[in-house]
Design a protein around this nucleic acid. Structure first.
Length: 475
RNA sequence: GGCGGCAUAGCCAAGUGGUAAGGCCGUGGUCUGCAAAACCGCUAUCCCCAGUUCGAAUCUGGGUGCCGCCUCCA
C-alpha cells in the first residue's frame, strides 16, 4: 500500500517514493537548547516520530537525523539582538555550552517520556563548524555571497526560486515589519552565513573571513548533507520554519550543490492553548512537569496528539487533555483484561488501520479502528495481537498497561502528598474504616456501613467494592 | 499592507460530491444491599448567504469570525 504524504513544496498530497531502495533519509529540525521543552515542541516531535514509525512499520529502514542548535544565532525575546543562549548563560551564570547541554538533556528526557524514538544520529551545531565553513566556501565559490561589516551574507536575488517554497511575495512583503533593516544588505531577505565582528559573542571560531560564528540556517544544510547526502527524502519541522529557516536552507543547499535539497517536506502545525498562541509572556506555556502537577501522564498528551491531524493547529485545553487521558486509561484497562496475544492478527482491522496511517498519518482515523476492535466480538487473543501490532505506530505502550496505570496512580498519590502533608495519615485512617465497614457489611448492617462511607468521604476518599476487595480512591 | 491556515454536537475531532468515524462529557438501562466499576443503548445535518449539481459538510462566488507568519519561535 503506498504511503501518501502532504508535501509542503507542492502543497499537495503525494505518494512517497524514496530515492534509495535500501533506506529512507529523514532530517528533523531539532531544538535550540536554551529553555525547557514545552508541549508545542513535543507536538512537532511526536509528529516526526509518528512519521518515522509509519515508515518503519511499512518496512523501510530509516536513517533519522536530528540537530541540536547549541550555538547562538538568535535575538532575545525583546529583539535586542542578543543571543538567547548567551542571555541564558549570563542569567544563570554559566557558559553557553553548559546551558545548551542542560536543556538538551531535558529535551531528550521529555522525548523518552513521550515514547518518541531517538533519532539514529543526533548532531550538535558546535561540533560541525568545519562542515558549515566548507559549505559557505562552496557558496562563495559559486558566487552566491557577498561581505558586509556583519559577515558573509547570502544573496537571495541570485537564487530565482527563493520565494517559491513559502510562496513569498517579496515585492509586497513588508520589510522590517519586526526587525530593523540592515542597510548594508542588498536585499532585505538576505541572511547571514557567517557572522563576524561581534567581540562580545561568547562562542567564536576562526575562519578565513575572520573570527565569528555561523548563521542559524547553515547548520541544518551542513549537517543534513554530512549524514544523509545532498538530497534528502524527508525533512520535517514546525510550520513556523517554512518562510525563513527552510526557505533559506533550500537556497543555501541548492546553490551549493546544484541539486534538489529535499523531496518531501512535512510541517507540523502549531499547538495553541485556548485558541491562542502559546508563549512565555502569556503564561500559557506548558511543560510535561506542569501536566504532571495536574495528574497527567506524558502518554496522555501523546494520545491527545493522536486525536487530530498534524496539519491542523491543535487546540490544547485541560478539558481536552482530560478526555484524552480518560480514554487512554480505558484503553490500558482493556489491555489488562486481554490474554496473551495470538500469533495471528485480525486482517480486516489491520487493513483499515493501514489505510488510515498511510493516508498522510491519519491517526484519528486509525484510533477509531482501535475502538471498533475493542467493542468487537473477535477472539480476545487475536484482539491483543492486533492491538499490540498497531501500537508499534501509536506508541502508547499498551503492552505495559499495568505499569503505566500504576505510574498514573503513583503520580496522583505523589501530588496528593505534596498538597496535603497529612495525606498518608488520612489514608491510613480510611483503610482502618474500610476494615470496619467490611465487618458491618458481612453482618448486613448496611446503614452503618454507609455511614462509614460518609466518614471516609470526609477524609477525601471514595470507595469502590469490587470482587478483589474494596478500593480506596482519592476524590 | 502582503502571505498562509482554520470554522463539523457541551469539549477534542475524522470525513473533499451520494444522505455525518472515534474519544470525552451527558443521559437511559443491565449489574450491585446501595454506590462505583464494567457492559449495552441514546445524543449533530456540518459559521452565514448565493450558485453549480439528480445530489454538497465536501465544488464555485461573496460575507462573517478566529488563528498564525512577514528574518526569536516546534
Amino acid at each position: 500500500m503506498p504511503i501518501k504524504l502532504f508535501n509542503t513544496a507542492s502543497r499537495k498530497v503525494e505518494t512517497f517514493q524514496p530515492l534509495n531502495k535500501k533506506y529512507v533519509s529523514m532530517y528533523s529540525c531539532g531544538i535550540t537548547a536554551y529553555y525547557y521543552t514545552h508541549i508545542g515542541h513535543l507536538y512537532t516531535y511526536t509528529t516526526s516520530d509518528l512519521l518515522r514509525r509509519v515508515l518503519e512499520y511499512a518496512g523501510y529502514d530509516i536513517r533519522h537525523v536530528m540537530n541540536v542548535t547549541d550555538v547562538g544565532h538568535m535575538t532575545s525575546d525583546a529583539d535586542e539582538g542578543e543571543d538567547k543562549l548567551i542571555v541564558g548563560a549570563k542569567k544563570e551564570n554559566k557558559t553557553p555550552a553548559e546551558i545548551a547541554r542542560f536543556y538538551e538533556k531535558c529535551f531528550w528526557e521529555e522525548t523518552v517520556k513521550m515514547n518518541i524514538l531517538k533519532p539514529n544520529t543526533i548532531c550538535r551545531a558546535t561540533e560541525h563548524i568545519s562542515d558549515m565553513l566548507h559549505l559557505i566556501e562552496q557558496l562563495e565559490k559559486n558566487g552566491y555571497t557577498y561581505k558586509t561589516s556583519v559577515g558573509v551574507i547570502f544573496d537571495t536575488s541570485k537564487f530565482a526560486a527563493y520565494p517559491n517554497f513559502a510562496k513569498l511575495n517579496l515585492a509586497k512583503q513588508e520589510a522590517g515589519a519586526r526587525v530593523k533593516i540592515d542597510k548594508e544588505r542588498k536585499n532585505p531577505w538576505d541572511f547571514a552565513l557567517w557572522v563576524t565582528n561581534q567581540p562580545n559573542h561568547l562562542m567564536q571560531w576562526d575562519s578565513k573571513w575572520g573570527k565569528g560564528f555561523p548563521g542559524w540556517h547553515i547548520e541544518c544544510s551542513a549537517m543534513s548533507m554530512r549524514y544523509l547526502g545532498e538530497t534528502l527524502d524527508i525533512h520535517t519541522g514546525g510550520i513556523d520554519h517554512i518562510p525563513v529557516h527552510h526557505t533559506n536552507e533550500i537556497a543555501q543547499s541548492e546553490c551549493a550543490t546544484g541539486k534538489k535539497f529535499v523531496n518531501y517536506w512535512t510541517h507540523t502545525a502549531f499547538l495553541n492553548v485556548n485558541n491562542t498562541k502559546m508563549s512565555k509572556s502569556l503564561g500559557n506555556l506548558y511543560t510535561l512537569q506542569d501536566l504532571a502537577g495536574k495528574d497527567f501522564v506524558p502518554l496522555a498528551l501523546r494520545y491527545f496528539f493522536l486525536g487530530t491531524s498534524y496539519r491542523k493547529p491543535i487546540n490544547f485545553t485541560w478539558e481536552a487533555l482530560n478526555a484524552a487521558q480518560t480514554a487512554l486509561v480505558k484503553l490500558w484497562k482493556h489491555c489488562l483484561e486481554l490474554p496473551a496475544p495470538a500469533c495471528e492478527v485480525l486482517a480486516p482491522y489491520i487493513k483499515n488501520f493501514e489505510e488510515a496511517i498511510y493516508d498522510d498519518l491519519n491517526m484519528a482515523k486509525a484510533l477509531a479502528v482501535v475502538w471498533k476492535l475493542l467493542e468487537s466480538k473477535e477472539d480476545a487473543s487475536k484482539k491483543a495481537a492486533t492491538l499490540f501490532h498497531m501500537d508499534k505506530v501509536f506508541g502508547l505502550d499498551l503492552a505495559n498497561a499495568r505499569t503505566q496505570l500504576s505510574n498514573l496512580e503513583n503520580l496522583k498519590k505523589e501530588n496528593l502528598i505534596s498538597k496535603d502533608k497529612k495525606y498518608l495519615e488520612k489514608e491510613f485512617k480510611a483503610l482502618k474504616l474500610i476494615e470496619h465497614r467490611y465487618l458491618l457489611k458481612q453482618q448486613k448492617k448496611y446503614q452503618e456501613a454507609d455511614a462509614i462511607r460518609d466518614q471516609i468521604k470526609k477524609l477525601g476518599f471514595s470507595i469502590e467494592d469490587s470482587k478483589d476487595g474494596t478500593i480506596l480512591k482519592p476524590i
